[in-house]
């Protein structure tokens, strides 16, 4: 296993940014492991890796998924690469930086330039928590041809309502009303894809029953169901915190069509 912090210059962000990357390299172990002083070699990879583009919530950055959950262990078990960018603007309120283009286009292009990351639709998944889940759906429904699956955890998928209720006075987010019917409105994106006959990614949606986004999630779940989409919904007691996301990141990765291999958990080496 390798976990790395990648620092590079982004055109879309007009600046230098950080990304955490989980890379599932697998060592060959002759025996018990480290303290024996044995030589170490690695299994060669088979083809390119499937990739989960995993986005943090509002106010967090690239480091939070790794620091707050066991995503690294789950990715290792699933032979999955995980790429975690930093996002400061989820609703494209600013004109000088373009996080949407960064996450949807520039970052995947750069990652595929340097790592053996698959470009295939069926090998690419995008998900996030809270605002990161909203951005994941927004990107996946704008580019349904690029992602096999999309996932959200505790996310304000009805962005218009969320902005109106919780962020009416925000200086960093756009006003909710201005998004209705646009390519930032999840309802409108679903309708548009249906109308154009575009195949949408398989959807994962979950929320804690005590989360403040719960009613939005229930409403969105019912909407997805009414449209007959390929959609799986999960809920359990929980609020808007890492206890919930720590549990559901495992469920999400188990749910994804990955190359599951022998689970070794967080074993002592």
């Amino acid at each position: 296993m390798a976990v790395m912090r990648l620092t590079f210059r982004s055109k879309a962000l007009r600046g230098t940014t950080d990304v955490n990357v989980i890379y599932p390299v697998k060592p060959k172990r002759a025996g018990f492991g480290d303290p024996e002083g044995n030589a170490i070699f690695y299994y060669p990879r088979e083809g390119k890796f499937k990739v989960l583009w995993l986005i943090h919530g509002g106010g967090d950055n690239y480091s939070d998924w790794v620091n707050n959950t066991r995503v690294r262990n789950y990715a290792e078990d699933a032979n999955l690469m995980v790429v975690m960018p930093s996002v400061r603007d989820f609703t494209s309120s600013r004109k000088d930086v373009d996080y949407f283009t960064y996450v949807a286009e520039e970052l995947p292009a750069f990652i595929r330039r340097i790592f053996p990351a698959s470009e295939k639709r069926e090998d690419n998944f995008i998900a996030g928590l809270s605002m990161g889940g909203y951005l994941s759906y927004r990107i996946a429904l704008n580019f349904p041809e690029n992602y096999g699956c999309v996932g959200s955890m505790s996310s304000p998928l009805d962005i218009v309502e969320d902005l109106k209720v919780r962020h009416a006075n925000s200086k960093t987010l756009v006003a909710g009303d201005t998004l209705t019917g646009t390519d930032r409105d999840i309802y409108a994106l679903v309708e548009k894809n249906l109308k154009e006959g575009k195949k949408m990614p398989k959807m994962f949606q979950c929320c804690g029953t005590e989360d403040f986004t719960y009613s939005i999630n229930v409403k969105m779940r019912d909407f997805f169901r009414s449209k007959g989409l390929d959609h799986d919904y999960f809920e359990s007691p929980g609020i808007h915190n890492w206890d919930f996301w720590g549990e559901y990141i495992k469920k999400l990765i188990d749910w994804l069509p990955t190359d599951q291999r022998e689970t070794n958990g967080h074993k002592f080496q």
Partner: peptide
Amino acid sequence: ARIQMNYTGFGTASMDIVVPQYG
């Protein structure tokens, strides 16, 4: 670009990598 990596080597080991970037 720069990569700061922890990987499984002799135990968990660290490595920095400078990666060429276009431009």
